[in-house]
Simulated assay, not measured.
Amino acid sequence: MVSYGFWQTVPLRWKDNDVYGHVNNVVHYSLMDTVINTYLIDSGGLDIAAGPVIGLCVESQCKYHASVSFPESLRMGLRVAHLGRSSVRYEVGMYAASSEELVAEGNFVHVFVDRASRRPVEVAGKLREALAALA
């Protein structure tokens, strides 16, 4: 497995399977969003409900390598590929928990903005420290 600074295992759900019997592509995007925000909340202190700063997704991409289905779990690896003044580009690896096979790779870009004005703000303090730790 490629090196990632943060790992989270996520169980797939029955409803994640599509009519073709595998996890639908939109689920991969949802799981990327989940692992990123779990890390930001737990390690970076991001207050998604009432904090003055929020992260907006401005770009995302996913490359699929293998099929996966419920009841499998995915091991989600997270790292920071680029940390800018107000933005961060994450890389996410999704591996089948039972076999360590690479299922998908994703990229996700957040721009951090002021909650009220929606204008970009500098990533600072505990949030910057947490993101730098994954770079």
Rank of each mutant, 00 (worst) to 15 (best):
V27L: 06
L134N: 13
L56W: 01
A135M: 13
S30K: 11
I48P: 04
L127S: 08
S43K: 15
G44S: 06
V109Y: 14
E59M: 02
A130N: 03
Y20R: 08
Y39D: 01
H22S: 10
E59N: 05
L31I: 08
Q8F: 10
Y39Q: 05
T34G: 04
Y64K: 10
E72W: 00
E129T: 15
L12S: 13
D42L: 05
P52R: 11
S73G: 06
V26Q: 02
R89S: 06
G84L: 03
I54W: 06
H65G: 05
C62Q: 09
S99R: 02
L102C: 14
V35C: 07
R85V: 11
N107P: 03
A133Y: 10
P52D: 03
S99M: 00
R79K: 15
M94P: 15
V113A: 11
R13W: 04
L134C: 14
G51S: 05
D33L: 13
V123S: 08
Y4H: 14
Y20G: 06
P11V: 05
V113Y: 06
L127C: 13
S3K: 07
C57S: 03
R128E: 00
V26G: 05
S67W: 02
G5R: 00
G51N: 08
T38P: 00
K15N: 04
S73I: 11
I36A: 15
A96D: 13
V92E: 02
A133L: 14
P120S: 07
S117C: 04
Y90W: 07
